[in-house]
Design a protein around this nucleic acid. Structure first.
Lengths: 223, 223
DNA sequence: TGGCAAACTGACGGTGTGTCACAAACCTAT
DNA sequence: ATAGGTTTGTGACACACCGTCAGTTTGCCA
């Protein structure tokens, strides 16, 4: 799979070719290659995603691809980095919304929806990020963390707020991480549920209630 | 990646070579190949797992591999099928244990441990099962469902038991699926948590409490 | 020991990878 | 417009893996 075992894991950020200053045309093809990588990732299984096809789609030769990325993974890494920022919006939602009473329950619902939408938007990318993370790839693990940690930390702070009124021996960070796990997994397996006859809407309500309860430590209003 | 695009997704169960009756030597090498596939899956990333290496490990030629499996995925599929049965033990635990009061809380803890152990045992395999499932591969999706559905259904029944005393408008199946999502995700990202300073033990307690509450609809005892 | 099915493999055409050295396209200053 | 320099693209290559098939080896037992 990798003819030159050594030279594979090259470091490369948004590098321009060898080390030259990037021009206009260059950025265009780079963008085209990224777009094609993303598109093909939707249609092709990760294992079968190939440089040749990406190049063909972008209307260039495979050699050109290697001028911008060291391998397919590197291109996916770029896409993932671009996506990771989107976690910020969720964190902001958590921090600025009201978590008390009925309004709090609505906030929980919005957060669940936020997760479902984020995963809907970046489904195929998140698949690979998850796999690579589980395989121990630190670069992807960092991205995943960057994405989810913002949410986890925001949730932890909310949990701590309620802790004063409602003491508990649980670790707030662990509770927040638990919730984030739930949200991430449900969001990514949404279609799996539907396939087996479990309506997304039912899941949404169930998760919302669990979320509210775990964060606030109280029974949801009107349950 | 696949020279003959057509002939790839061949059907093959525990088939013996072409159509011949399986002998003793045959089963042995088949087993050896499976073992090597499993071992290499631990060390190699899924994307880089290759027939050549599997064959080398098993001390045979690559051609031999193709006498038993149509491709690497098929071998992994076999391993996954063998593992899927292990969900039964968890379902039994759920069905036969007591879910009331303090004993119920202990049951919840045991279930969480059961998940952690199952994932510990089959980490690399479950990674691939998850990816393939999310990529829409029905064969893997079936395996994953077979594994998790037993648990989900058992939990749903328990949820319904409590429902009579504690009415709710939530769909019991959705609640069970929610819980199973939580358990599966936490089990698979266990090391990720530890890496970021969240002790598995804290997660375990947090999940146990959420599990107990969702199943019974009551505050855990001694909280 | 001969015969026969089961098990294995060498060799091959096809496709993908990753690296060059070189060619083409694009400035920009004269 | 055009020469000279830089950026960008590519053909060709050496290597690795895939998946097939014809033909060989192995093991069994009559």
């Amino acid at each position: 799979m990798s003819p030159v075992k050594a030279g594979k894991r090259r470091t490369d950020g948004a590098r321009a070719a060898d080390g030259r200053t990037p021009g206009n045309r260059g950025r265009a093809t780079r963008e085209r290659l990224l777009k094609c990588t993303a598109d093909l990732l939707e249609k092709t299984s990760y294992r079968d995603l190939t440089v040749i096809e990406i190049a063909r789609c972008a209307g260039t030769s495979p050699a050109t691809f290697y001028q911008y990325f060291s391998d397919v993974e590197a291109a996916i890494l770029m896409l993932a980095r671009a996506m990771a920022g989107h976690g910020a919006a969720l964190a902001t939602l958590i921090r600025e919304a009201n978590w008390k009473g009925k309004a709090g329950f609505d906030t929980a619902g919005e957060l669940v929806n936020g997760f479902l939408e984020l995963w809907e938007e970046h489904r195929s990318l998140l698949r690979v990020v998850d796999l690579a993370t589980l395989e121990g790839d630190l670069r992807f693990q960092n991205i995943r963390t960057h994405l989810l940690n913002q949410v986890t930390e925001a949730l932890r702070d909310v949990v701590e707020t309620f802790r004063s009124q409602h003491p508990s021996d649980l670790d707030p960070t662990a509770q927040a991480a638990t919730i984030v796990s739930l949200l991430a997994h449900v969001a990514s397996h949404r279609y799996g549920f539907e396939f087996w006859g479990i309506r997304t809407d039912h899941i949404r309500r169930s998760v919302t209630r669990t979320l509210y309860w775990t964060v606030t430590g109280r029974q949801p209003p009107g349950a």
